[in-house]
Amino acid sequence: MDLFKFNSKIAFWGIILVVVGLVLAFATLFSLDFDISALINHGGSWYAPIKWK
């Protein structure tokens, strides 16, 4: 498989990986109860809103 030539199979698997990654990331993100607004609006200070057990 020549990586330096356009290969639609590689592009196809790239898209599959991106889609699977997106689904997995979003599905777990919403079940993790992250405080997303606090993540975005941390006002310059680093804040990791992870609720440790």
Partner: peptide, 10 residues
């Protein structure tokens, strides 16, 4: 893992 798959696919 989802984030890493996103990176790899990208």
């Amino acid at each position: 893992l989802g984030i890493s798959l996103l990176f790899l696919g990208g």
